[in-house]
Design a protein around this nucleic acid. Structure first.
Length: 487
RNA sequence: GCGGGAAUAGCUCAGAGGUAGAGCAUCACCUUGCCAAGGUGAGGGUCGCGGGUUCGACUCCCGUUUCCCGCUCCA
């Protein structure tokens, strides 16, 4: 059986639309950039992944609990977290070299040069102007005016060919309150779900009878005004995170970090993702985020290259300390046994649900040659499949329809199933191959005599004769013992 | 954000200054005894959107939106 490798996301995008996994948002109005909607198959797949994660993180551990925090949060949260400060840089682009600079840094360098040349008076004047930016026309305009007036040139190209100054704030703003229009009433759509966990850390500690080390898990939407949002659902402006923050005693954080990195990698494999397409990529120390002591990505080999699906971070006590500072509320944990007090360190596991869904689609997508014909099939783990079984009468005869409907009604109790009697039997098999459906059940006339049906497997198209009573058990086994087809 | 390319039916695409086609998909009826290709028919597009040129624009020009590739950016 020969196969074609994906060379880009095109096939996935087409299939997603044609079969109803993922659509572009507001398509009838021309689409909204970097926003996507999940269709009937997509929502099932996504929810299955989410449910699997939730179970693996909460149910499977006795010291991890869940929360569901609101998207809106007090604006001070984002001051404490560092997002307000960190996302407000005014940037300017050199049109010649295509390089981007922080506008205020350009001016500061220029001032330094002036001082080197002994033009202190001029430098003082500029410094004064720089210190008062935002008081004349506006932050960006004031900076731009200085650069224009001083004819500051690009450090790289020496060109004087600038775009205007723009602010890249990655947080979405909105107004809180129906009549609000003042800047005072601005709140943000959360750029990460983690803060919803940190601000509830005390509540959980006080109510859930947990002791360090313990974890809080959450699934929810987050929003970022990415400068470049692209590549289908890989980088979206509205996306869903599945996060777990694990609170540990300082000093044990490195060990816990390693442990969680391993556990999370194991989870990805448990989804049936092929090992050759997974890897861990540690962040070099100089690339670490402001809050992190150590960080690594779990990456998947997408058709567009190795890309991050999940991040594991040692966030230290940065977040809790900052919230203690900004809120004035104690974030310490008191260890009764050791009689000591400390602010816990936090190990974060943060995975993009949309990226994970895309990963499953990419990893399972196959185009196979079958008798000179191309079969498109999604060989995903059966437990993730949007539709678990197709149920077909071999031909459209009332007796067969009746038994097929009866089987459908029974299986419906526990599985998502699809009844189909249109077209040839082969066509129906192939149709569900594209939806990743692991089992197809076909009712024929022999079966009316001995209460048996044919079950056909998606991965190898193998067929088996089974008793109707055993269907549930056969499917259960098939799901439990499934192994990713090697290629 | 910059540079380049693209946008025609649900999907993949052809076409062309005189108001659009194919394959697949969808639906109906017939057929069909286990791997997409049987028969008959049907639905579906103001050719991304807005302007302009023209007797006439899907086609030419301008703008805009969206997507793709590269750069840039990326908590």
């Amino acid at each position: 059986m020969s196969e074609k490798n994906l060379t880009g996301l095109d096939e996935i995008v087409s299939l997603s639309k044609a079969r109803g996994f993922i659509f572009q948002s507001s398509e009838v109005y021309g689409g909204l950039a970097a926003v996507y909607d999940y269709g009937p198959l997509g929502v099932e797949l996504k929810r299955n992944i989410q449910a699997n994660w939730w179970k693996a993180m909460t149910q499977a551990h006795d010291n991890i609990v869940g929360v569901d925090a609101a998207i809106f949060m007090h604006p001070k949260v984002w001051e404490a977290s560092g997002h307000v400060e960190g996302f407000n840089d005014p940037m300017i682009d050199d049109k010649q070299s295509k390089k981007r600079y922080r506008a205020d840094m350009l001016i500061e360098q220029h001032i330094l040069k002036l001082r080197e040349k002994g033009k202190d008076e001029k430098a003082d004047d500029l410094q004064q102007q720089l210190d008062t930016t935002g008081t004349r026309k506006g932050l960006c305009e004031d900076l731009y005016d200085i650069i224009m007036a001083e004819e500051i040139k690009s450090p790289d190209s020496g060109a004087f060919d600038w775009t205007e100054v723009r602010q890249f704030n990655l947080m979405f703003k909105t107004h809180y309150g129906a009549t609000s229009k003042d800047d005072d009433d601005i709140i943000y759509l959360r750029p990460e779900t983690a803060q919803g966990i940190f601000v509830n850390y005390k509540n959980v500690l006080d109510t859930a009878r947990v002791q360090v080390p313990f974890g809080i898990a959450q699934v929810g939407k987050a929003f970022r005004n990415e400068v470049v949002a692209r590549q289908f659902v890989f980088r979206m402006r509205e996306f869903e995170q599945m996060e777990m923050q694990y609170f540990v005693e300082p000093g044990t954080d490195e060990e816990q970090y390693d442990a969680w990195l391993n556990k999370r990698m194991a989870w990805h494999k448990s989804l049936g993702i092929r090992e050759k397409n997974l890897r861990v990529a540690p962040h070099p120390d100089d690339k670490l985020a402001h809050y992190a002591r150590a960080a690594a990505d779990i990456q998947f080999k997408f058709p567009i290259g190795w890309q991050e699906v999940e991040g594991i971070h040692n966030r230290t006590d940065f977040d809790l300390s900052r919230h203690q500072e900004y809120s004035g509320k104690k974030m310490e944990y008191f260890d009764q046994r050791e009689q000591k007090r400390y602010i816990p360190y936090v190990i974060e596991t943060s995975i993009g649900l949309d990226r994970c869904t895309l990963m499953v689609l990419c990893d399972s997508y196959r185009e196979e040659e079958v008798d000179g014909d191309t079969r498109t099939v999604l060989k995903m783990h059966p437990k993730l499949a949007p539709v678990k079984a197709g149920i077909f009468p071999l031909v459209k005869k009332p007796e067969l329809q009746e038994l097929a409907r009866k089987i459908e009604a029974e299986l419906k109790e526990d599985y998502t199933v699809q009844y189909d009697e249109s077209g040839s039997i082969g066509k129906r098999y192939r149709r569900l191959d594209e939806a990743g459906t692991p089992f197809c059940i076909t009712v024929d006339f022999d079966g009316l005599e001995d209460n048996t049906v044919t079950i056909r497997y998606r991965d190898d198209m193998r067929q088996e004769r089974v008793s109707v009573d055993k269907l549930d058990a056969v499917m259960r086994d098939g799901m439990k013992n499934w192994k990713s087809p090697l290629d």
